Amino acid sequence: MPNSLNHPSTLLKPEWVELIRRHAPEAETLGKLHPEQLELVYDQQWFNLLSPKEYGGLGTPLPDLIKMEEALAWADGSLGWVVTLCCGAGWFGGFIDPGIAQQIYRDKQACLAGSGAPTGTATIIGDGYIINGSWKYASGVHHATYITVNCNIIDGDRPVLDAKGGQLILPFVLDRADVRLISGWKYIGMIATGSDAYAVDNLYVDKNRCFEIDPAAAIVDSQLYTYPFMQLAEATLAANISGLAVHFIDLCKPAFDFKATNIRRVNAVNVLVMNEALQSATALLNQARESFFEAVEASWNNPKSEALLKAVSNSSRMLAKIARETVDELFPYCGLLAASPDTEINRVWRDLHTASQHSLLTFLD
Rank of each mutant, 00 (worst) to 15 (best):
R106L: 13
K108R: 15
K108H: 14
Q109W: 07
C111H: 09
L112G: 08
G116S: 02
G116F: 05
A117T: 10
A122L: 12
G126S: 02
G126C: 03
D127L: 08
N132E: 08
G133N: 05
G133C: 09
G133W: 05
S134M: 10
S134Y: 02
S134R: 11
W135G: 09
K136H: 05
Y137E: 04
H142N: 15
H143S: 15
A144I: 13
T145F: 10
V149C: 13
V149I: 11
N150V: 02
N150P: 00
R158Y: 12
A163H: 08
L168M: 13
I169A: 06
I169L: 07
P171Y: 03
P171C: 02
V173M: 10
S183R: 11
Y187V: 11
I188P: 04
M190D: 05
I191V: 15
I191N: 08
T193E: 07
G194D: 10
S195H: 05
A197W: 02
D201E: 15
N208M: 09
N208V: 08
R209P: 09
E212W: 03
E212C: 02
I213V: 13
I213D: 00
D214N: 09
P215H: 01
A217V: 00
A217T: 00
A218Q: 00
I219D: 00
S222V: 01
L224K: 00
P228I: 03
